[in-house]
Design a protein around this nucleic acid. Structure first.
Length: 442
RNA sequence: GCGGGUGUAGCUCACUCGGUUAGAGCGCCUGAUUGUGGUUCAGGAGGUAGUGGGUUCGAAUCCCAUCACUCGCCCCA
């Protein structure tokens, strides 16, 4: 080392923010697989993709999340004051922005039914954990307009087509929340039951009893669960006091049976916000503790946000969680079709042109860019799992030929450039077709 | 927000009661004579032990703080 060591400035390397992750090239094929499968199925169901801003006026989420929601209560939002002195918030979920866009663009005027889907990042300031991140990605749908149970079945059928296409074993936990009016009656009944038992409840549940008694059902505390097991059930209450909601629920159950969608009724599945109505559900998979998605009917939300009264139902599915549930059962980057191996300066100088020719006919190919030896280039071809090495030296150049070596069999033939192009293009086309039928060519 | 665990080479991990130039496997680079990969063999690069402070003659090892990851609670996708 002749160089005098230049004093290194000691700088802290910058890390990605807590709870966020880089998705590297070896992982993106799995992501694209999920996203493209979702897009394709949504399209099949005649849902149109909508892309809304990553941030919205804070007020939008403050209104949609409601005062008793944990997103708001525990300050799980990334809110900031912009130079215009307005408060904005990185979207913590996908529905609010979609509904806002629905209203702002008067999508209701285009017809009685709006079918929208979205894919994108959401942001929540939470303690990161397995399957829980500060930036996570969701794909979701919103079906606005209809109130009929067939529309509930439509979005659930779509979700299960997605799970089936991905090879994901999943089922749905289902409940009905009634209407805001009937729910109030139930909450009174529930409160009447819980109030005398207040002292036996956990601290959290005592708070819930105050703010939103429905959420006591959510408690994982063993004593709470015992107490709640004896409480009046929402579905029983609806049976007697809200026959419309019950009929809706029964109809949906019938459709789920028709569609062979496995479901399980879960009385603990509750959402407290006023605009929720009737159907509430969560998608679960046996290989994951947490749910991979959830949703429900929100007949009051559009109106709440200043739009025309519009029933709606939708769901959101966490892409990270789907990938966790899929595990290794996911595509990896496609191997290279050809790797160009160059000998000598002339060959190296002609490499941009040669590569360009092969790429124009669709061949997935690459070459060395750091002046490595022939042996090292062959090693690289092998490491990239290239099906062919294209060897180009003075001998080949002189005759406008190129040596095509099959890396698996080791066989090598000297072909005219034209023939090599035709051969590789045909092979590449075969692979593309094969991947297409394997469901990976998106 | 609360509680537990972890942090040593690009990756997965060792280092016995604190004691010399911190190791291994994999990966990476080079070579094994003239233009051929995978196997084998030889050699090489790469770490101020997450970061900062403290205790000590001496710290990867003990203590504190901080950051990150991770598991659980809570909640959610």
């Amino acid at each position: 080392m002749a160089d005098t060591p230049t004093p290194k400035t000691i700088t802290k390397t910058i890390q990605s923010p807590r709870g966020t992750h880089d998705i590297l090239p070896e992982q993106t094929p799995a992501w694209r697989h999920v996203e493209n499968t979702f897009r394709e199925i949504c399209t099949r169901y005649n849902f149109g993709e909508i892309r809304t801003p990553a941030f919205e006026a804070t007020e939008l989420f403050a209104r949609t999340a409601g005062d008793s929601s944990d997103i708001v209560v525990t300050k799980q939002m990334y809110s900031f004051i912009a130079p215009d002195e307005q408060s904005y918030t990185l979207r913590p979920e996908g529905t609010a922005g979609t509904v806002r866009a629905f209203i702002q663009n008067h999508l209701n005027e285009r017809g009685p039914v709006s079918k929208l889907f979205y894919i994108g990042p959401n942001f929540r300031y939470e303690a990161p954990q397995a399957g829980r991140y500060r930036q996570h990605h969701q794909c979701g749908v919103e079906l606005l307009g209809p109130d009929a149970p067939e529309s509930d079945a439509e979005v659930l059928a779509l979700a299960f087509d997605l799970f089936r296409a991905l090879g994901l074993e999943a089922s749905v936990k289902l409940n009905s929340l009634g209407t805001p009016q009937s729910r109030l009656g139930y909450i009174d009944a529930l409160r009447a039951y819980l109030e005398p038992l207040r002292d036996s409840l956990s601290e959290d549940s005592r708070k819930r009893l105050q703010i939103n008694p429905l959420r006591v059902w959510d408690s994982k505390d063993a004593r709470d669960q015992e107490i709640v097991a004896g409480a009046p059930r929402l579905l029983d209450y609806l049976q007697q006091n809200d026959t419309d909601s019950m009929a809706h629920f029964d109809a949906l159950r019938g459709y789920l049976d028709d569609l062979h969608i496995p479901y399980e009724i879960d009385a603990a599945l509750v959402r407290g916000l006023d605009y929720y109505s009737r159907t509430a559900f969560e998608f679960v998979t046996p290989n994951l503790n947490s749910s991979i998605g959830g949703g429900g009917r929100y007949n009051g939300l559009v109106e709440e946000l200043g739009g025309p009264p519009t029933p709606a139902i939708g769901f959101g599915i966490g892409i990270e969680r789907v990938l966790l549930a899929l595990g290794e059962n996911v595509p990896s980057p496609p191997p290279l079709t050809a790797f160009l191996v160059m000998l000598g300066d002339t060959a190296r100088q002609s490499s941009p042109k040669i590569l360009s020719l092969f790429r124009r006919v669709g061949v997935h190919c690459d070459c060395d860019f750091v002046g490595r030896s022939l042996k090292a280039q062959m090693r690289e071809a092998n490491r990239q799992k290239a099906r062919f090495a294209l060897i180009l030296g003075d001998n080949e150049l002189a005759e406008n030929k190129i040596a095509v070596k099959n890396m698996e069999s080791g066989e090598q033939e000297l072909l005219h450039m034209d023939d090599a192009l035709i051969k590789l293009a045909a092979i590449n086309a075969d692979e593309t077709v094969a991947r297409y039928f394997a469901g990976e060519a998106h």
